[in-house]
Design a protein around this nucleic acid. Structure first.
Length: 707
DNA sequence: CTGTTGAAATTTTTT
DNA sequence: ATTTCAACAG
């Protein structure tokens, strides 16, 4: 087995720290990797190196934060392996392609959990065909229980379903009891402790009866599986090596799973950056990464500090931002990309101004050779990009938005999915209720009755044959019976099943929603992509675990050769990089979000979030601060604009002391030198009009008149 | 029992 | 602006 030359070749592109990480043996390894330090490359090479050392690919598990990064990593692992094989081909050292055929296991915790539970689930009494509830479904089910327990109408207001779900989820993911969770995270719900307990008990029972798992269950059951003597052992044997990306954003339950996978840390590699932990709202805890060496005493620590992404001026600015953090982060990022401009802080008059300026700059950069795909606009909350989206659409600039409301979460898609899911799992009460309530003349009472009938008949839709539908659903009902009968057999090819469901649903769609036509087109898209899945079951789980962001996303390759701009929430931008990055709405109240200024822990997380946004930039970085925000006061008539507005403050994460790391401009192109005067942006002549005829301000004015 | 209407409360980030 | 809840008409 003489693979030395090829491997040496593989390693020569790495710096000494990266090399150390890649060639580390099988003791527990913690890689603390600052932003842009080649963390993905290191992880990919490590996997390749392990395979070259004789570990079978199928025995390597790669846990990533998103499906997107899983795909990217697997692609790159394949690439490196191919290189390796080509290099060793003549030495005939690789043997009969042990490698090319079988792939590394890769995916999110939830996706991997699903695969393992389908395979080993019966060891802990899980039905083969369990369906998965997304967040909204889980809330619906908890709402059913909530009203059954008559918690909905108490004299004092009981927490809403979303809040209940958050509390439950927090308990599961942080592996804490209800009371401490209430005390620390939901203090205003503390008085409901007993009721919440009853609620959660009943909720768990209902999931069990329905043969359904929610997101939290996927982790919970995976963890339970590892505790099972036989199944746990089988899984541990299956994975000799486990690597986890973005470890700073894992929670206690996920840490427990890792412990179950690698009881003594053998074969475990963990990568992360404590300065980039931004998911505490999902019960992620930075303690996981900080305490790993305590958990596994023999842990080797490797720190990556050489940044390959950004220019020196950008790094200087971002380093200053994170230095302000209450907890000190010891890494000091440096780069050899010395040349480059300081990041630009642009003070705009208002959001319209910001929109115009951002678009103008994007087009300029594109003209100078940076295609749209290599540019991204980042923002704190999904709706912050609404005006920009409207303007981009108007100007026919293609864009792709990540984060925010998912296409899959729209009502009509959920309706169709509920129908398919009920066929897959007739015990899925939430799906059944959703479907039945669509029928005219059927309300909660009749729907509940029908669900009960279905349950008594052990999920056979024959049970509905005898039921007499209300007048309004005379035609729908027989059609539904026929449809469910066909789908339940599951004999027909999947695209045809979706087609039948779609045809049945069409009239209901028109009855329930105003704009039926575009919605119907979305459903056609679903039918189109159905052919890509092996089975209805895998289609349903994959779509709930990896929700496509848009129909374009679903369509997949079709759009790929077109160039499009990236819009993304900062959270969704994690781990990615672009040549030009525009951070918009960098104003107190947005960054940090008003919702998160309660305690300093939260503010610190918002700071890291801002840091994540800034460190996405390779060459060009823009930060925008609109000064004036229009206030929407319902009831008060607004004539024209400017009469009801407020002034915003630049984000507190860019205090005066670090502004020298930025170039500063107002949106009319003037460079500002002295301390920023809030009013300096006013009354100055506007810069020349853009190449298009109207500015967004004109548009906004015209839409105001319609209201 | 269903479907509609109006008033009141809430308003982020995601697997 | 959207979601939730209670009250009322059919």
């Amino acid at each position: 087995m003489n693979k030395r030359p090829a491997i040496e070749q593989l390693l020569c592109t790495l710096n000494p720290q990266q090399k150390q990480a890649v060639t580390h043996g099988d003791g527990p390894l913690l890689i603390v990797a600052g932003a842009g330090t080649g963390k993905t490359a290191t992880l990919v090479h490590r996997v390749a190196w392990q395979i070259a050392q004789g570990v079978h690919p199928a025995k390597i598990l790669l846990l990533t934060f998103t499906r997107r990064s899983a795909k990217e990593m697997l692609r790159r692992v394949d690439g490196v392996l191919r290189d390796l094989q080509n290099a060793t081909a003549d030495a005939n050292a690789t043997g009969p392609n042990a490698v090319a055929g079988s792939r590394v296991w890769g995916g999110t915790f939830h996706a991997i959990a699903t695969r393992l539970l389908r395979r080993y689930g019966n060891a802990i009494g899980l039905p083969q065909g369990f369906t998965i509830h997304d967040r909204a479904d889980s809330e619906d089910l908890i709402n059913v229980v909530r009203s059954e327990l008559r918690l909905a109408k108490t004299d004092r207001r009981f927490p809403l379903k979303g809040t209940c779900m958050s509390i439950y989820s927090r308990c599961v993911n942080s592996r804490q009891k209800l009371l401490p969770v209430l005390k620390t995270v939901f203090p205003w719900c503390e008085e409901w402790q007993d009721e919440l307990k009853r609620l959660f008990d009943a909720y768990v029972d209902r999931k069990e009866e329905a043969g359904v798992l929610d997101y939290d269950d996927l982790l919970l059951f995976w963890n339970a599986l590892l505790a099972d003597d036989e199944a746990g052992e089988a899984i541990r044997r299956q994975f000799e090596r486990v690597a986890v990306d973005e470890y700073q954003d894992t929670n206690s339950l996920q840490a427990a799973i890792l412990h179950g996978l690698c009881p003594h840390g053998k074969g475990l590699t963990v990568v992360g950056d404590d300065a980039q932990s931004i998911y505490s709202f999902r019960a992620a805890t930075v303690r996981n990464i900080l305490d790993l060496p305590k958990q596994f005493p023999h842990t080797t620590l490797v720190t990556l500090e050489q940044n390959y992404r950004s220019t020196q001026p950008i790094l200087e600015a971002t380093n200053r931002v994170i230095e302000q953090a209450r907890e000190r982060f010891t890494k000091n990022l440096w780069t050899t990309r010395a040349q480059g401009r300081r990041p630009l802080m642009v003070t705009c008059e208002d959001e319209d101004d910001q929109t115009d300026f951002v678009i103008e700059r994007i087009l300029e950069h594109r003209e100078s050779g940076i295609e749209l795909q290599r540019q991204a606009v980042l923002f704190r909350a999904s709706h912050h990009s609404m005006m920009l989206e409207a303007e981009l659409t108007r100007r026919n600039i293609p864009f792709h938005k990540y984060g925010g409301l998912k296409f899959i979460e729209t009502a009509h898609i959920k309706d169709l999915m509920a129908l398919l899911r009920l066929a897959e799992n007739p015990r899925d009460v939430v799906s059944a209720m959703r479907l039945l309530l669509l029928l005219p003349g059927v309300g909660p009472a009749k729907a509940r009755k029908l669900v009960e009938m279905l349950g008594d008949a052990a999920g056979s839709f024959q049970a509905w044959k005898a039921w007499k539908p209300p007048q309004a659903s005379k035609t729908h009902w027989p059609a539904l019976l026929k449809l469910m009968d066909t789908l339940a057999h599951g004999k027909k090819p999947l695209p045809q099943q979706v087609h039948l469901a779609r045809v049945f649903y069409r009239p209901l769609l028109e009855e329930h929603y105003d704009n039926a036509a575009p919605r119907a087109r979305d459903l056609e898209q679903i039918e189109q992509i159905a052919a890509r899945y092996d089975s209805r079951r895998s289609m349903l789980s994959e779509i709930t675990l990896d929700p496509p962001n848009s129909t374009q996303d679903l369509a997949g390759q079709a759009e790929l050769d077109d160039d499009y701009l990236i819009l993304s929430t900062i959270h969704s931008a994690k781990g990615l990089e672009w040549d030009a990055v525009y951070v918009i709405h960098a104003v107190d109240g947005n960054i940090p979000s008003d919702m998160a200024t309660g305690d300093s822990e939260q503010v610190e997380e918002e700071r890291r979030l801002f840091y994540v946004a800034l460190t996405r930039a390779k060459t060009w970085l823009y930060v925008f601060c609109p000064l004036r925000y229009y206030r929407y006061r319902p009831g008060q008539h607004r004539s024209g604009h400017g009469d009801s507005h407020g002034y915003a403050q630049r984000t507190r994460f860019l205090p005066d002391g670090i502004l020298d790391k930025f170039e500063r401009q107002t949106s009319d192109g003037r460079v500002v030198d002295g301390p920023l005067d809030v009013h300096s942006a006013h009354g100055v002549s506007r810069r020349p009009k853009l190449r298009t005829d109207l500015t967004s301000k004109d548009i906004r004015r015209s839409t105001k008149d319609i209201w």
